[in-house]
Design a protein around this nucleic acid. Sequence first.
DNA 1: TTGCCACGTGTGAACGTTTACATCAAGGGG
DNA 2: CCCCTTGATGTAAACGTTCACACGTGGCAA
Lengths: 350, 350
Amino acid sequence: MTKVGGRTRKGVTIVEVAKRAGVSTATVSRVLNNSDKCSPETRRRVYDAIAKLNYVPNHSAQSLKRQATQVIALAIPDIGNPVYVGMAKAVQETASRRGYRLLLISTEGSLSEEIYAVRSLAQRVVDGLIICSLTVRQQYLRELERAEAPVVAIGRLLDEAKVDNVRVDSEAGAVLAVQHLIDQGCRKIAFVNGTLGTVPANSRLAGYRRALFDNGLGFDPELVVDSDFTMMGGYCAMGALLDAGKDVDAVFAANDAMALGVLRRLRESRVRVPEDVVVVGMDDIDEGRISTPTLTTVSLLAGERGRIAAELLLDRITGAFRGEWRRVTVTPRLIIRESSVRYMVDTQEG
Amino acid sequence: MTKVGGRTRKGVTIVEVAKRAGVSTATVSRVLNNSDKCSPETRRRVYDAIAKLNYVPNHSAQSLKRQATQVIALAIPDIGNPVYVGMAKAVQETASRRGYRLLLISTEGSLSEEIYAVRSLAQRVVDGLIICSLTVRQQYLRELERAEAPVVAIGRLLDEAKVDNVRVDSEAGAVLAVQHLIDQGCRKIAFVNGTLGTVPANSRLAGYRRALFDNGLGFDPELVVDSDFTMMGGYCAMGALLDAGKDVDAVFAANDAMALGVLRRLRESRVRVPEDVVVVGMDDIDEGRISTPTLTTVSLLAGERGRIAAELLLDRITGAFRGEWRRVTVTPRLIIRESSVRYMVDTQEG
DNA sequence: TTGCCACGTGTGAACGTTTACATCAAGGGG
DNA sequence: CCCCTTGATGTAAACGTTCACACGTGGCAA
């Protein structure tokens, strides 16, 4: 059989190879897998047959027998989001380097999709899962803990969660950002927060308050606007601040997308950045390098977290690590660009 | 067996379900797959057993038996590139909607990786492949034509290629861009091209020349600078143009990334856009919506192409389409934003 | 009553590997 | 010269499904 009009053909199997090489299928398999325990002569004949017949082992059969697929899954809320793109890229690279393929799952941030992703581990489509969620509910944690295969969660979980976990101390990141604003001489610092109830929104707000407190500055609820982590959201939030006529000399946005919206809104109102208002974001997405002005931000090391998560997962899958659950926390880094530097306006790259 | 210290447990199989429900495994399978031909009573008992035992069918076994994995692969040169992100997102959505999962392969634009991706179809890890390449060589085409499973190529191939193919007429896109510049009154239009030898670079140059010719304008080789499709490349290319002291009233960049580099370089030299020089890019990446000025561009409908490719592939896989190879060409669209509109500088969204 | 059909279900053979175990030949030490 | 070891290979049983086929039962028409 050959491929005709869209119908696929059956591949050549190990049986035909064995026949052609004049050995048993077991021998062929041995040559392929542990080519040490077989004579050089046999090995040559088998390789010959394989080449002649164009044999390729069937992956489903191997997976079934070996109980392993050499594929890992990455479940993220949104493929389009630059933060997750960086993460996905790092995971893909790490997986590929270690001989694994990557299955991409988009959860759209919905709890049911997340749970579905975890449950589908029982199907054995993949050997393990890296999952990234914005909200943490009891049910989610329960599912993670009783998953049918190794799982690594990216993002802050409850402290008692018994799951391999890579997180970033984004509260500390927020402190870093706000402290930087204060160091620049700002005193009236607005905060554009992301979607209420999500873990990042909570911890960034906490960081904002802590930094103010540590510097003896009061917390003014009216300087906090809630938004939704999107550029449009940041744009509107800044609009609300302007409309309210609040006197503000700096804006800290809970992520870069919103910060870019803020910049855009300020530009439309002819408010100069950084001369009149200083702006800082969070995430370090590529867009921040080319905005006008370029955006000061706090890197949450998405790629780094992806890489680490993949390493943890693969160590677990291969059995290189067998202990209890682990937790890795990465430390955010301040990246200073034009939007927050008053004494120097042009041509600076972070 | 249960999961202990990272060791995975064997899942419950159809045999146990059958035993518990007091039927044969065939019946369980029938209930699961074509639940019409079995009595309601049996069906109930089977579902009961499944629920009690928490049974989930093993995907490898199903794939092996059915000769189909319900997974498709997408091979792209670079996951980080916004163009491919949009494409991947659309493919993922389409696949997911039609009950398929997505395996992501990064080829890094290397021919050998591309060929490896096509060849690995023989392994039957996936039921089909969508592949996206920047260069088209004979060997690549040969591999595509003799692939072991359905393949859809995104990007222009040679005309005689017998492969399902989704392409965009990017020469027409380039004409669109340059015509727009001419319509704005520009006469000295520079062209920042991408990596020489790639298909997109060739066709965009062709479009640039054709548009000039159609409008009776001469082609000046000195107004063409070759670059590499990156922002930094565009930045340097613009630098070269400025250093050469060429008198230019417009720049057409072969993609948005380079266009953003061009904008950046112009800003550093205090050349105003669009007042002094008009700039147009190509691709319609998100960054172009937030740059200063926002970037006029030609959308090549990456998402749309991804969606179509996925539909073609799935129709082929499911047997919904059985004919000869097909070719779909999408038509680029001009998106006018600030960087090319002289009579109106601020607050315009494309 | 007989024959036929439809329907629900069980039997068993695939699907293409891997691997424990058996087998066999050759070689070496006693 | 025999026995034991060693190494290469074959045999056959998994892995967990699906599905063609066979079988038995009951209903209905002739």
